[in-house]
Write a protein that binds this DNA or RNA. Structure first.
Length: 259
DNA sequence: TGGTCGGCGATTTTTACTTCA
DNA sequence: GGTGAAGTAAAAATCGCCGAC
């Protein structure tokens, strides 16, 4: 992992806020590059006259990835140079460096072939060990770090998609339950209406057919109102427990062992 | 117990594409 | 119809934190 530049947000921003809530300030322009590096960079990648877009289109396998971000460049500098040296710069150098900076900031866009292979590997394993990473990087002519980043982002996308799917599923569940609740409330009202009008018919006739079921193991009639009806002579009529399920309420998911 | 490494969430940056005047 | 600016979604990359070792 690269942990450099951890303080580049400045002191005034860092105080009093969790680090991950701090808004980052735009970075200052990247430090000047070593001439040898930058020259080879821009020319190697894009050629001296073509735009990045042209380069990308004309050469799908061009390894723009090599120096795709400022961060990589900084690291590259450490790897290659070891220590920073002051580079004398004149006006002629500046415009060239600005071009190079712009080129260096260019971000890699993976080719279809690269993406396809990465997808294949991801299907096999959503994470890679360092050796697999190196191998894949070599195979695709990318940096191991880029492979790592791609897998990280891919995992994040997968997770996001799964979250969306889960969310949709829960939404549908909620709709179904709301509808079911509405239906049961209506049924309850009807039952109450029946209860308080006319002398009560035999118990099982009070219940809508849908609520009456025969328990498959004991073959007794079960229904949403049976439990309450059993104590219909008590004081619980019309109370909150009227619909309280009993052990003989047939639940296909949790049929009681008491039958 | 401190250091390293890898994964993750949040965020930024860049690209490619679309829309609109 | 061609063109450039503005808007936007997607993807690559960065940053900081955390847990495992």
């Amino acid at each position: 992992m690269e942990k450099e530049d951890s303080c580049d947000t400045g002191l005034s921003l860092g105080l009093g806020l969790p680090a991950n809530l701090r808004r980052r300030q735009p970075k200052p322009p990247p430090p000047p590059l070593e001439p040898s590096l930058t020259l080879s960079l821009s020319e190697e990648i894009y050629g001296s006259t073509t735009t990045p877009k042209e380069a990308r289109l004309s050469s799908p396998h061009s390894t723009i990835s090599s120096f795709s971000t400022t961060n990589y460049i900084k690291k590259e500098k450490l790897d290659v140079g070891g220590e920073e040296t002051e580079v004398e710069r004149g006006s002629s150098l500046r415009s060239r460096e600005e071009d190079d900076e712009a080129a260096a900031r260019k971000k890699l866009r993976l080719t279809k072939e690269q993406s396809a292979l990465l997808e294949d590997r991801f299907k096999e394993h959503s994470t890679l060990n360092p050796k697999q990473k190196q191998t894949l990087a070599k195979q695709l002519n990318l940096r191991a770090r880029q492979i790592e980043v791609w897998f990280q982002n891919r995992r994040a996308r997968t997770k996001l998609k799964q979250t969306e799917v889960d969310c949709e599923f829960l939404r549908r569940c909620c709709e179904t339950l709301t509808e079911e609740n509405r239906r049961l409330q209506k049924e309850l009202q009807e039952l109450r209406a029946i209860k308080f009008s006319a002398p009560p018919p035999p118990l099982f006739m009070q219940l809508p057919a849908a609520t009456l079921m025969v328990c498959p193991s004991c073959e007794r009639i079960a229904g949403a109102g049976v439990g309450a009806a059993n104590k219909a002579d008590g004081k619980d009529i019309g109370g909150g427990s009227f619909m309280k399920p009993t052990q003989h309420l047939f639940n296909p998911f949790a049929h009681s062992a008491t039958c």
